Amino acid sequence: MNRDISSIRRDYQFEDLLEDSSPSNPMQLFDTWLDNAIESCPEDPTAMILSTVDQNQKPHARVVLLKQRNEEGFSFFTNYDSNKGEQLAQNKNACLTFFWPSLSRQIRIEGEIKKVSRAASEAYFSSRPKGSQLAATASEQSKVVSSRESLHKKFDELEQQYIDSTVPCPENWGGYALEAKYIEFWQGRPSRLHDRLSYKLENTHWLRSRLAP
């Protein structure tokens, strides 16, 4: 690489993240920040990095989309036989990271993941565009494919099969929900004196702390 990437930086000029103006429940702050992101960041504001650990204690990360935030937790949908599905079956601990550069904000959420109900998975699957349904059915996610053409051929065959009917939700496809145990909010500030507020769940109460940047 011929570029000097060590000199790439910017200063952050955004509002403070202070205890006095932050709710005692981090879910309220999360919802506010997500609403801000949806309004200000038109490209994938619900994108989040999902980090998992495999049976050899090696970490893995990829970007997925948040689809629900309710009493069950933070939910996304995928193929249960994918690499992340296999890793979550072996280790239910995971981390979600949101980053909105234009707002200089990051949220990191740690907790345990479980599958959502089959009814919830089927309900969400039925709401997806038909092309997405067909792609989920055609793809053996994370498995090696012989060629792009072979994948398209399978998609086309399924498209003809279900041309006049509903695509059923595959048995190996559905949702996961992360139940948060720890949430950290990061707000970029000038001179790298960033604001970091952490919330740790103790029994049924959230303990809030300020962390050094």
Rank of each mutant, 00 (worst) to 15 (best):
Asp31Ser: 13
Leu34Arg: 07
Lys114Thr: 14
Asn91Phe: 00
Ala119Leu: 15
Asn79Met: 09
Phe76Asp: 03
Tyr124Ala: 04
Pro42Cys: 07
Ala89Glu: 14
Lys130His: 02
Leu50Asn: 01
Leu134Pro: 05
Arg105Leu: 14
Ser102Ala: 12
Ser127Arg: 04
Leu96Cys: 12
Ser139Cys: 11
Gln87Ser: 10
Arg128Leu: 15
Arg62Gly: 10
Arg105His: 11
Ile113Gly: 03
Tyr80Arg: 00
Ser104Val: 04
Glu72Phe: 06
Ala37Phe: 00
Ser132Trp: 00
Met27Ile: 06
Gln28Cys: 04
Phe30Pro: 07
Glu112Pro: 00
Gln106Trp: 11
Asn36Ile: 06
Thr32Leu: 14
Glu71Gly: 06
Thr52Pro: 08
Glu122Arg: 03
Ile109Leu: 13
Glu110Cys: 05
Ala138Asp: 05
Ala94Arg: 03
Asp44Val: 09
Ile109Gln: 10
Cys95Leu: 08
Thr78Arg: 08
Asn25Trp: 06
Ile113Lys: 02
Val63Lys: 02
Gln28Ser: 08
Arg105Ile: 09
Lys114Ile: 07
Phe77Lys: 00
Ile49Arg: 03
Met27Gly: 01
Arg69Lys: 13
Arg118Gln: 10
Thr52Glu: 09
Gly85Pro: 05
Lys115Thr: 14
Phe99Gln: 00
Glu122Asp: 15
Ala61Asp: 03
Arg118Cys: 07
Lys130Ser: 06
Ser104His: 09
Glu140Ala: 10
Gly73Pro: 03
Asp31Leu: 12
Gln28Asn: 09
His60Lys: 03
Ala94Asp: 06
Thr46Asn: 13
Gln90Glu: 09
Glu110Trp: 06
Asn70Arg: 03
Ala135Asp: 08
Lys114Glu: 11
Asp54Phe: 04
Gln57Cys: 09
Gln28Thr: 10
Ala119Asn: 12
Thr78Val: 08
Thr137Gln: 13
Ala37Gln: 05
Lys92Ser: 15
Ser127Pro: 08
Ala61Ser: 15
Ile107Arg: 00
Gln57Val: 07
Phe125Val: 09
Asn91Arg: 11
Lys84Cys: 00
Pro26Lys: 07
Ala136Ile: 12
Met27Ala: 04
Leu34His: 13
Asn91Lys: 09
Tyr124Thr: 01
Ser82Lys: 04
Met27Thr: 02
Leu50Ala: 05
Thr78Met: 08
Lys92Gly: 03
Glu122Pro: 10
Ile38Phe: 05
Val63Asn: 03
Ile113Asn: 05
Phe74Ser: 07
Asn91Gly: 02
Glu140Thr: 09
Thr97Arg: 06
Glu122Lys: 14
Ser102Phe: 00
Ser121Thr: 08
Thr52Asn: 05
Lys92Thr: 12
Gln133Asn: 07
Asn91Val: 06
Leu103Arg: 12
Gly73His: 07
Ala136Phe: 10
Ile109Val: 13
Ser126Pro: 04
Leu96Glu: 15
Val64Gln: 00
Ser75Lys: 01
Trp33Pro: 01
Ser51Ala: 15
Asn79Asp: 15
Thr78Gly: 10
Leu65Ala: 07
Ala119Gln: 14
Glu39Gly: 10
Arg108Gly: 11
Ala89His: 13
Ala123Cys: 09
Gly85Val: 06
Cys95His: 05
Ala119Thr: 15
Phe30Glu: 10
Asp81Asn: 15
Asn25Asp: 15
Arg118Thr: 10
